[in-house]
């Protein structure tokens, strides 16, 4: 490992994707503002952004593209960071941040809200999704957390899968027995940013901020934990504290993402996975780059979804899989690198 970081060629190869990514972030934001299902010329968009423009352009920019871009940034950031934390914490490169019951809890709560409470607008889902996600992950953590912090959280992941399965089954049962709820859940479940206004993003902002703070607290110990939990403790890492921070960050961020866009499963898995292949083994680096890469992927996927099936839209959650899956497979075929 030391020999690798010492080689200037390796270092340069590692810096290049990061630089490219940093440059692509503003490009993705600009794309998200300029391109959409309503094919307006960039001049009109600019006019609307600066306060002028006709009614159509200002509606499209103010009510659709601006709030949607903000929502995309929130979702991408949350999924990228929580995915990287999840894979570092579980030492499992296939772990998805929704695994601790977050996605299943959010879906279940939204299904209940739609089928039995009569909630109809995406803004109304937020509270339910966050509540369901946090409650489910609390149950998972309470049931599956290792009593000895030195043992790897394999059982926690299994518990997450088991509890998640129960909730997913109930969710499917609810939606299949009520066609109206079924139709709503189908769209929500695909993961989409369509019609997500500021009300939605504002409502999850506290959750997102709390998650980011927890991620910052957890980050310094990640490298030590990735080498092995016994070793980390020997190095003086307070495992209980770092575990608590990592778990809080994973669930809060994944809950924030699920509340805005629905359970987008693929971003949190593929982004840190691919980033690890590009930037190497430093977990803090993976975390930071994943945050940016998550935002870029979600924004680009959303833009593609807006123009792919005019005059309709393809949900961003579907597009991310269409883009991310081939990338993942291609990298898996090329790369000799394996684990963390």
């Amino acid at each position: 490992m030391t020999s690798r970081t010492a080689t200037p060629v390796g270092a340069r190869r590692r810096r290049l994707p990061v630089v490219l990514l940093a440059a692509s972030l503003p490009a993705a934001v600009a794309l998200s503002l300029l391109v959409g299902s309503n094919l307006l010329p960039p001049g009109e968009i600019w006019a609307a952004l600066t306060g002028g423009g006709d009614a159509t352009a200002s509606y499209v920019v103010e009510h659709q593209r601006l709030p949607r871009t903000v929502a995309g940034i929130v979702v991408g950031l949350a999924l990228g960071v929580s995915g990287a934390l999840m894979q570092a914490y579980t030492r499992n490169p296939f772990a998805d941040p929704g695994l601790f019951g977050v996605s299943a809890g959010a879906s279940f709560a939204v299904a209940v809200a739609v089928a039995y409470v009569g909630v109809t607008q995406p803004a109304g889902y937020v509270g339910w999704a966050v509540g369901g996600a946090l409650l489910a992950s609390l149950v998972v953590v309470a049931l599956g957390r290792p009593t000895d912090p030195r043992t790897p959280p394999t059982r926690l992941v299994l518990t997450g899968v088991a509890v998640g399965a129960v909730l997913a089954g109930l969710t499917t049962g609810i939606s299949l027995s009520d066609p109206d709820a079924f139709e709503r859940m189908l769209t929500w479940h695909a993961g989409s940013l369509i019609d997500r206004g500021y009300d939605v993003t504002l409502a999850v902002l506290p959750v997102l901020l709390a998650g980011v703070v927890a991620a910052v607290v957890a980050a310094p110990s990640l490298n030590a934990v990735a080498l092995g939990r016994d070793l980390a403790q020997a190095q003086g890492v307070d495992l209980r504290r770092s575990d608590a921070a990592a778990l809080a960050a994973i669930t809060l961020l994944a809950a924030a993402a699920a509340a805005v866009a629905g359970p987008v499963v693929f971003v949190g898995l593929v982004v840190p996975h691919v980033v690890r292949w590009c930037v190497g083994v430093d977990q803090r680096r993976i975390l930071a780059v994943s945050a940016v890469a998550g935002v870029v992927l979600v924004l680009v996927a959303d833009v593609v979804g807006r123009v792919a099936v005019l005059p309709g839209e393809m949900p961003a959650g579907i597009v991310t899989a269409f883009i991310g899956a081939p990338v993942l497979v291609a990298l898996a075929r090329r790369s000799r690198a394996t684990g963390l």
Partner: peptide, 17 residues
């Protein structure tokens, strides 16, 4: 399939616990 996941998931949770 809805029931298998619920029963199987609940039982697995209990066993793990």
């Amino acid at each position: 399939g809805v029931v298998t996941v619920v029963i199987g998931g609940a039982y697995l949770t209990w066993l793990l616990r």
